[in-house]
């Protein structure tokens, strides 16, 4: 056990899950509060055709290359959701579901095409897509984590402006802020976090890491900054404890533990709020 704790690799793993958890909670919180709760789920699925196109065009499975291609299709998906909701009478949830289903179907079509061709070097593809990319090397992990660190710094610096652009675009425009550009940078960072996290913890769990922390805090009436900070803190606690859990219990994966712990946080938060409401109501009647 002590040898595991002093292992240098372990430090990287804890550091990595912490960073991914915190940045996902922070940027996901902003996306979720804009009534796009399942955006992470959609973007993660939309990355799959990108990965497949990368494999077909380049014929290699190098993570950085695939991240680049995945980034492109996810960005296209984000743009299409925006267009579908603004230019047609479809609502946000329908637009999200359409984009998810079409991109995922396209990805699966390409996957079955690639597998029918029996190309060399594509053996690990199935595992990569369905989120068991535990075979990632340390150098790649470090590269991916650097990207995540950039995200956090971006959020930290641009938070006041971002708040305006996301929640009151008309006012932001009147102040002379280039809304379309800011919106694009936000989308880019969001997609980056999803694609990077997807390679480390898996697609669906990444969607959970974006959605659940803010949902836990959403129950309580807090300001935006405080809510995001609290969500990020929860995510950090969940990330650290899930890493330790997966260490103490043999063969258990980190990502799923993190989501399970966050879900328990939600149940506690909801119950606490019910008690709080009940308490307040009974006090009012007196």
């Amino acid at each position: 056990m002590t040898s595991l704790l002093t292992n240098a690799n372990l430090l990287w793993v804890i550091f990595g899950t912490l960073l991914i958890g915190v940045s996902a909670a922070a940027i996901g919180g902003l996306a979720v509060l804009r009534a796009r709760a399942l955006i992470g789920d959609v973007l993660a699925h939309a990355a799959i055709p990108g990965v497949m196109i990368g494999v077909i065009l380049m014929g290699s499975l190098s993570p950085l290359l695939l991240v680049t291609f995945a980034l492109m299709t996810s960005l296209i998906a984000y743009y299409l959701i925006h267009q579908l909701t603004h230019r047609t009478k479809l609502r946000t949830d329908t637009a999200l579901a359409i984009i998810l289903a079409s991109f995922f179907a396209l990805g699966m079509l390409l996957l079955s095409y690639v597998q029918a061709q029996h190309w060399p070097n594509t053996a690990g593809l199935d595992r990569l897509l369905f989120g068991q990319a535990a075979a990632i090397t340390r150098v790649e992990l470090i590269q991916l984590l650097l990207l995540t660190l950039v995200t956090l710094v971006y959020l930290w610096i641009f938070f006041p402006r971002l708040k305006l652009v996301l929640f009151n675009p008309d006012y932001a425009r009147s102040l002379g802020i280039h809304v379309a550009r800011e919106e694009f940078i936000f989308a880019l960072v969001l997609v980056l976090v999803v694609v990077v996290g997807m390679h480390i913890v898996g697609a669906i769990l990444m969607a959970g890491a974006l959605l659940i922390p803010i949902t836990v805090m959403r129950i309580w009436p807090l300001g935006l900054g405080l809510m995001l900070t609290a969500a990020a803190t929860l995510a950090a606690i969940a990330a650290a404890s899930s890493t330790l859990l997966s260490l103490f219990i043999e063969q258990s994966p980190t990502g799923p533990w993190m989501i399970v712990i966050l879900g328990i946080f939600f149940i506690l938060s909801w119950l606490l709020h019910l008690v709080y409401q009940h308490h307040n109501r009974s006090r009012k009647h007196v």
């Binding site: 399942l38 959970g208 659940i212 949902t215 959403r218 129950i219 989501i259 966050l262």
Partner: peptide, 26 residues
């Protein structure tokens, strides 16, 4: 609760999926 329908849907299905993965691993 105050949670939007899509957020609560995401919460439930992602949590169930993660729990299934943990159970499989254990």
């Amino acid at each position: 609760s105050i949670i939007q329908p899509d957020a609560s849907l995401g919460l439930v299905f992602i949590w169930m999926f993660a729990l299934a993965l943990v159970l499989i691993a254990l």
